[in-house]
Design a protein around this nucleic acid. Structure first.
Lengths: 168, 168
DNA sequence: TGCTTTTATCTCAACGTTGAAACTTTCAGT
DNA sequence: ACTGAAAGTTTCAACGTTGAGATAAAAGCA
């Protein structure tokens, strides 16, 4: 059994044999990158079916799981979505035009803008989530659950070390 | 110990308890996505230090590990880099301007264009690789090698299932 | 030899993200 | 109150990628 990354590492071992002992991180890192690409393409197809962008779906689910009143500040999205501020403004602009969310300036701090899920947005999210999780289960369905769990645990350690510990 | 993904899953369990048994794929998939983001940022900083773009570095190493004569067709890059044809054309245009690679149309099939590493490009790549692998080792250095290996193995299975089995 | 299909690459407009600068509001110190 | 620093968001130009279409060459077939 071998994948594209095995081929890549094989090439290095042949071309630069002296690097042999330094290639083990490639085995994980390159696969994380390639898996991300695969997931990304899959996600875009899924979102297109439902008429939303991948980034918009991210905003919808982030709002939905935050619980009532389904409203978060723009700043909260920066960490949750791991994108820059300009991207969030852009996403919200389009989603507001679609009627999925609305901007609410509340009195407490007039710098902040709360992004709030509209009723339409909430209903769409409920529909999307079911399909979304089915899709995930299908993608990983043929893998050993215990191994998936172990791999997730290792990635958690990496992310903790890198300080990816909070979404607020 | 918990990371951002634990927080996300925790929110879902609270908001939609009935989804509890369907959230296990999120534990892996969300971490692959977030780890990819972390790696991406790290890579950009690394590349900026050496005056190349992340996509350009990818082309350089792909050529280098392919072995003499360090020349590949544009099509070969599509699968290796998992990007579209327009992106490759764009990358090669810029790298040719920098003198890192050169386009060679050889007689056999005049449709194909071989992208060839220049001497300058090759020398730069040698320098970059040492730093690159040091960086990788530092990133994963605090993790248990056996666990890294196991996680890489699981991701390999996923990628095989998704047909990511060749770079040619 | 003609004709169609396939393969390989390039072109280009649309798109989303980045990152720095601008803007407004709030906070802290005096 | 006043002033400077900090925080939250928006603006905007530059950038790289996408994806469909164009172009050109090769292969298959009559």
């Amino acid at each position: 059994m071998s994948d594209a990354v095995d081929a890549i590492v094989g090439q290095w071992e042949k071309e630069r044999p002296e690097l042999r002992d330094d290639l083990w991180p490639v085995q994980l890192i390159a696969r994380v990158q390639r898996m991300n690409r695969v997931l990304d393409r899959e996600a875009k197809v899924f979102c297109a079916k439902h008429g939303v962008e991948w980034g918009e779906f991210d905003v919808l689910t982030t709002l939905r799981r935050s619980g009532p009143p389904y409203a978060l500040t723009a700043g909260a999205f920066l960490k949750a979505a791991m994108v820059t501020s300009g991207a969030i403004t852009n996403r919200i602009d389009k989603m507001e035009a679609k009627g999925l969310v609305e901007r609410v300036r509340d009195g407490a701090d007039r710098r902040t803008v709360r992004i709030k899920l509209t009723e339409h947005g909430k209903q769409l999210t409920e529909v999307l989530m079911a399909d979304h999780l089915n899709r995930y289960a299908r993608l990983l369905g043929d893998l050993d659950p215990a191994e998936v769990d172990a791999a997730a645990g290792l990635l958690r350690k990496f992310l903790e070390q890198q300080g990816d510990t909070s979404i607020t």
